[in-house]
Simulated assay, not measured.
Amino acid sequence: MSVLTLNQIFKSYGKVQALKGVSFEVPRGSVFGILGPNGSGKTTLLSIILDVLNADGGAYSWFGQPGSKLQRRGIGSLLETPNFYHYLSAVNNLKITQSISGRGNEEQIMGVLKKVNLFERRNSRFSTYSLGMKQRLAIAGTLLGNPEVLVFDEPTNGLDPVGIAEIRDLIRELHEHGHTIIMASHLLDEVEKVCSHVAILKAGELITTGTVDEVLADETIVEVSAENMTALNEILSAFPDVKNQQWQEHQITLHFNKGEDPAENLNKFCFERGIVLKQLHTRKKKLEARFFELTNN
């Protein structure tokens, strides 16, 4: 079952089209990454599904019901930089958050602080927190009321490597505790490490969506050449498990699924058919290259 379904979402700011008919579904129990360069429409999309902005066209639904503010009770969200009172403690800041949002109760505050590993610093002023701690406190605020779905916009933005690792670990823990998580990011590495599913946006358009393994799968690439390139190209069309075959000027490039190592079998296959290879080179396509392909076509 999907927790969120988007159908042809459009949004413009004057002549600028921020979203151009975006449609996808977020499966229940997933960590769903919305990935794209800055300016691709990620924040606009999150703002629409959280009722902060109105779409110009299209529709979306939460838990099978048309999107509305009434559905927000089951959703915790963090769209902007944490905004707390610097002179108040974590506990008192969360009391204010609970009072304003109407989600949860004061008894839950200690529990969410434990979840984000801030219980020992619960009485410290917000001004004494590191950036990572401030972000974790903001996430604690989203957990009030125990929402099923959590929505984060660039949750590691501006953090140092230690802070990034802390937030990644926290997202994994929240997922293990049963939360469906939707997060926007421009960082491929972040999505690849924590997300199960991904939708890639470019200039407001949906490029592709699916599981991370399907969409961002790296590949094994084999480059071969022989004296008779025409004959080589013909016999390679019968070699099994080739995803893509490209004949360039002096070599033929074969693409295989991640984890495969066909070099030995490929060499034997060619030799048994009377072709002696002059070149046989195996390399891996990095995730960065795959992402570049998707967003620059």
Rank of each mutant, 00 (worst) to 15 (best):
S89V: 00
S89D: 05
A90K: 02
A90P: 03
V91E: 07
V91H: 08
N92M: 09
N92A: 09
N92Y: 13
N93M: 07
N93L: 09
L94P: 04
L94V: 02
L94W: 00
K95C: 12
K95V: 10
K95Q: 15
I96A: 01
T97D: 06
T97M: 11
T97G: 01
Q98C: 11
Q98I: 01
Q98V: 05
S99D: 10
S99R: 14
S99I: 00
I100E: 03
I100Q: 05
I100V: 15
S101N: 07
G102N: 13
R103V: 01
R103M: 04
G104W: 09
G104S: 08
G104Q: 05
N105C: 15
N105Q: 12
E106D: 15
Q108E: 15
Q108C: 08
I109G: 05
I109V: 01
I109K: 01
M110R: 12
M110E: 15
V112Q: 02
V112T: 02
L113I: 08
L113T: 04
K114M: 08
K114Y: 09
K114A: 11
K115V: 11
K115W: 05
K115G: 02
K115M: 13
V116K: 12
V116D: 11
V116E: 12
N117E: 14
L118F: 08
E120M: 11
E120Q: 15
R121C: 07
R122N: 07
R122A: 14
N123T: 13
N123A: 12
S124I: 00
F126G: 03
